[in-house]
Amino acid sequence: MTRPFRFGVVAPFGTDLPTWLAQVRRIADSGYSTLLMPDFPRLQPAPGPTLATAAALTDLRVGTWVYACPLRPAWMTAWEAHSLSELTGGRFELGIGTGRPGIEEELREKGMPAVPPNERLVRVRETVQALRDLDGPGRHTPVAMAVRGPKARALAAEVADTVTFVQVPDEPRGEVTRLARDFHAVRDVELALHVSVVGDRVAPFMAPPDTDPAALRAVDSLAILPADPAAAAEEIQRRREEIGFSYIVFGADFADTLAPVVAELAGR
């Protein structure tokens, strides 16, 4: 089934409050579907209150992109997700994953126990189950999972509403295409594409700062889009037609540049 396009923006709080609020309003006015927050403790305000503020200011959907499950007990993440779903009138989406590279060192710095990789998926499952219990029969908070390995993909096939595939640096298009097609053969869910580079610019919080745009172009990576809006729109349509990606997530630095793309494609 061909899903209509929707577009999300990862908009970390990296400036003063008035500047960030003005950015949120522009994102809403440009037709984006969802405002998303990364999970980087100490580098920005906590996602929960920040997203609640954005939801009160606009009619945007809001979500995490994505909670790192080792940073919180499962019940705490579920409670916060359910609370945001209630407070936004059902406009919250829980994005969750097993943790970015280097999460073990981050946990040690915070005095927290390391969560072994084999236990992280257990925590993701526990989080989603606790969220479903809190939601009850009257609410369904959407869950987006960032996945890579076969065990993560299998869990996402059971519990996720949206799936994005974690891309390794300089990964060619063909490998991610294979992952997407194999996943869709198991379950037809919304596929999201994490775009961290547009033209020669790398989005903060979405890719390492030493990411080489030229190397991404050389392997025809799905993590990059052209800076020209017309070319970007054509490429996004190609990616839905050939692979199935219908939910495209950009960094906030690109929101204004790609606003014409959103105006042309959102909802189509």
Rank of each mutant, 00 (worst) to 15 (best):
M1G: 14
F5E: 12
R6D: 04
V10F: 00
A11D: 15
F13C: 02
F13D: 00
D16H: 12
L21Y: 02
A22P: 10
A22F: 01
V24R: 03
I27F: 04
S30Y: 10
S30I: 04
S33Q: 13
M37C: 08
P38H: 13
F40P: 01
P41R: 08
A46T: 02
A52D: 01
A52Y: 00
L57N: 02
D59F: 03
V62S: 04
G63R: 11
T64C: 15
W65K: 02
V66P: 07
V66E: 02
Y67R: 14
Y67P: 06
P70Y: 02
A74N: 08
W75Y: 10
A78G: 05
A78L: 02
W79Q: 15
S83K: 14
S85V: 04
T88K: 10
G89R: 05
G89V: 01
G89T: 03
G90S: 13
I96P: 09
I96H: 04
G97V: 05
R100H: 14
R100V: 13
I103C: 10
G111L: 11
G111H: 06
G111C: 10
P113M: 08
A114C: 11
A114S: 10
V122L: 12
V122D: 12
T127W: 01
D133Y: 05
L134S: 11
D135L: 06
R139A: 15
H140P: 01
A152Y: 01
A152D: 02
R153K: 12
A154K: 08
L155P: 10
A156T: 04
A157F: 04
A157W: 06
V159K: 03
V166R: 10
P169R: 05
V176K: 09
R178C: 01
R178D: 07
R181K: 15
D182R: 14
H184P: 01
V186I: 06
L191R: 11
V197D: 01
G199R: 10
V202G: 13
A203T: 00
A203M: 00
P204V: 10
A207W: 05
P208H: 13
T211H: 09
P213T: 07
P213K: 09
A215Y: 06
R217W: 04
A218D: 13
V219A: 11
V219C: 13
S221M: 13
P226I: 06
A227P: 08
A227F: 01
D228N: 10
P229W: 01
Q237A: 15
Q237R: 15
R238W: 06
R240A: 05
E241I: 03
I243H: 11
I243Y: 08
F245I: 10
F245D: 12
F245V: 12
Y247R: 12
D253R: 06
D256C: 00
T257D: 13
A259K: 03
L265D: 04
R268T: 15
